[in-house]
Nucleic acid binder design. Structure first.
Lengths: 365, 365
DNA sequence: CTGAAAGCGCTTACAG
DNA sequence: CTGAAAGCGCTTACAG
């Protein structure tokens, strides 16, 4: 196809076009423009002519052709479930990290959204050459389902619900975070602490609940089952659960503090409290978990537990690329040991501080 | 390569593998498995054998090879600037819409993040076959810069700062939204209305400011330049601007209402007011713009102007695909007329309602 | 230092 | 109804 015809058809210039313009073969052009290894094999004069021709024609190597030849698309896939039709804030933070990591490594990221995790074959269908590997965001997959996934693309998971064969799992020390947070609430003088917890069967829910119970035990505060109410990870879940709890327990039995399973839940909780005319933190302290953007957009801002979600996203990319370069591991392999990221208390205005001068008993002294 | 060797190398099965297993040519397999047009050209028995073989081998058409042959990757690119290292809430809403639209049309989406809009050649480098077209999110590009973009991939913009040659621009009726919002504030009895505005030179800032001024004029309220303070589109910008305004004007000169250029700015404004011990809406009403998630995570929730950001994201996908199928338009073409989406007032608790029974003068009666 | 050849895995006319 | 051939645009050995 002539250059003119190509322009008519609005096609991008090819290596052959560049070669022709520079009076060399497409191959020589390839070596100069894209070859890392053989970049010095070309004579300087030829080299310059090729580079000039490429610039003039605005040559860009076609990614599909290159991928076909090299078996690398330089694209990372991200599989995430959209709940309630919305990407949540947790994902936004992780995603920021993944994008950073990808950019640093010359990769781009493609998103695959799923209605739920029930259909593992949809995951398999993503591994068709569009991506080199896949990051699973908080997957609710069984080990069995993972075995049916193709083994020519590596997988890395963030906050997987259970160990997955051959899939590296990045998690954070949620139990510790919940423990530290509740211990902090106790240190502020609170003893009657309501926990709006997540759905059962979710590892995140369970770890946070266990951290709550351990902190109570450490302070010798007896566990009161009526102070645990099932909510969930969304704003709606938080506001509904809080409203129901208030209706049941009555306003006179207000807890001193509320530990919500995540920031979204805490936002809903704040909403329900505001509607009931209950002030935060004057009447009751509220805390969340995750330290997503939502924790800084509430007024008062939320005391919460910071998960290093961006760092985890970046790390997921690095691990994926490492696996890609190592070659396949095989889904018959045992789950690699998870990588656990530390968490950190983020103290903000939603928790009432003890009045100055008042001596507060150390919870675990 | 034999099937065994392929397994060893962890390669996916190819059309040739499927053909071999079914005793037909790769071509026949292609017609059955991927051919839309010629799906009935194959004899039923052959057909079944091919389908069975494909299932057994877990065949997936290689996307890179298919893209090379068809010139379609079935992937949409999204170009967005990350400010302050973070994707903002505006983008999250638009992105949700794009993902929905993409999923409905069998497309996936790839994100390209930019540090700023100064380097149009980076945009060009995305159009290398990885994507079929590009959606520009709030681009700050000159018409000149757009002319240097390749014309073998279509572009669609959301909230472009100026008309872009050959690029469809989706915008919303921001001026009208600001007018309606400020008229509403006036209808609630407010006359002294502070506007925390956006940076100059940004079309969004200017349209909102103009809407504000038109609403004042319609109610015969004289424009007071000391009631406009430059803030910006972020939480920090809002809180800084509000703090400075309070320091300058003094607490005795509090406005009756504050119209913030967007929700993020309003969150910052609420923060500054809370720190100063000023109650919302008892002491002052506050309103935002955009109706992002942040508008529902503040206490009290924000009165704001709803932009149909998700619908706009979905539409961007549809328009892009339409252009893709029509064939190229050429960057010499004049900017197509923009598509303007309607906006809608979202009334929430952050604006004080007039006491019941009190008669409020209609602002434009 | 340079080019002709083969191959990546698919699709699209074109023959039979 | 089915297959052999050519081509998409690149890279990777292999000759000269």
């Amino acid at each position: 196809m002539s250059r003119l015809a190509r322009i008519r058809a609005h096609r991008a210039a090819t290596l052959a076009d560049v070669g022709r313009a520079a009076g060399v073969s497409a191959m020589a052009a390839s070596a100069v423009l894209n070859g890392a290894r053989t970049s010095s094999r070309t004579a300087p004069g030829t080299r310059d002519r090729i580079i000039e021709a490429a610039a003039m024609l605005r040559y860009r190597a076609n990614a599909a052709a290159r991928a076909l030849a090299t078996r690398r698309m330089n694209t990372i896939g991200i599989a995430v479930v959209i709940e309630g039709g919305e990407l949540n804030q947790y994902f936004l933070e992780v995603f920021n990290g993944i994008l950073e990591g990808a950019a640093q490594n010359g990769q781009t990221a493609t998103i695959f959204t799923l209605p739920d995790w029930s259909d593992a074959s949809r995951l398999a269908s993503f591994c068709d050459g569009r991506i080199d590997g896949l990051i699973l965001i908080a997957p609710l997959l069984s080990a069995e389902a993972v075995k049916s996934l193709p083994d020519h693309a590596p997988f890395v998971a963030l906050h997987a619900n259970c160990p997955l064969p051959g899939v590296l799992n990045l998690e954070s020390d949620e139990g510790r975070g919940a423990f530290d947070l509740v211990r902090f609430l106790i240190a502020q003088g609170h003893r009657r602490i309501l926990h709006l917890c997540g759905p059962p069967g979710r590892i995140g829910s369970e770890r946070r609940l266990r951290g709550y119970r351990r902190a109570l035990a450490a302070a010798r505060i007896p566990f009161d089952p009526s102070l645990v109410a099932e909510a969930g990870f969304t704003i709606d879940a938080g506001s509904t659960a809080m409203r129901q709890w208030l209706a049941r327990a009555g306003r006179r039995n207000l807890p001193e503090a509320i530990f919500c399973v995540n920031d979204g839940c805490a936002v809903g909780c704040l909403e329900a409290l505001a509607q009931a005319g209950i002030r935060v933190p004057a009447d009751v302290s509220v805390a969340g978990f995750d330290d997503t953007l939502a924790a800084r957009t509430t007024v008062p801002q939320l005391t919460t537990v910071r998960q290093p979600l961006r760092a985890m996203g970046r790390r997921a990319v690095v691990e994926l690329l490492a696996r890609l370069n190592e070659g396949p591991i095989g889904s018959g392999a045992p789950p690699p040991p998870p990588t656990v990221f530390p968490v950190k208390l983020a103290v903000r205005a939603s928790v009432r501080m003890p009045p100055p001068g008042r001596v507060v008993a150390k919870p675990d002294a």
